[in-house]
Amino acid sequence: MEDTILISQSVAILVDGNNIERSLESEHRDQNMMINFDVLIPRLLGGRGLNRLIYFREGKNISSKLAERLHSKYHGSVRPCHKSADIPLSIKATQLASKVDAIIILSGDSDYVELVRHLKSEGVRVEICAVPSTTAGVLLEEADYFHPIVKEDCFSLNQSGTKKKSRK
Rank of each mutant, 00 (worst) to 15 (best):
E141M: 09
R69E: 14
E141A: 14
D38T: 14
L66Q: 04
I7F: 10
P42A: 10
K164H: 09
G108V: 05
V78I: 11
G108P: 02
I62R: 13
L70T: 05
R125S: 09
C154L: 13
I7T: 12
E68N: 15
G123S: 01
A102F: 00
A136H: 04
G76P: 06
I54W: 01
D3W: 10
L14E: 05
I105W: 04
S110K: 10
T162K: 14
R125G: 00
K168H: 03
R69A: 11
V78P: 03
L89K: 01
N158V: 06
S64R: 15
S107W: 01
K163S: 06
Q9V: 02
R29Y: 11
L139R: 06
I87K: 11
S156Y: 09
I20P: 04
L157A: 03
S160W: 03
P88Y: 09
V131C: 08
Q9G: 08
R79D: 01
F37C: 02
G46F: 05
R57F: 01
L115K: 06
S77P: 00
L89Y: 07
H71G: 00
R48F: 02
L157P: 00
K83V: 11
E142C: 07
K65A: 14
E2L: 08
I20E: 02
I103R: 04
M34F: 11
K99P: 00
I13M: 00
L53M: 07
R22W: 12
S98L: 07
K165D: 13
S10G: 10
L24A: 05
I35Q: 04
C154P: 03
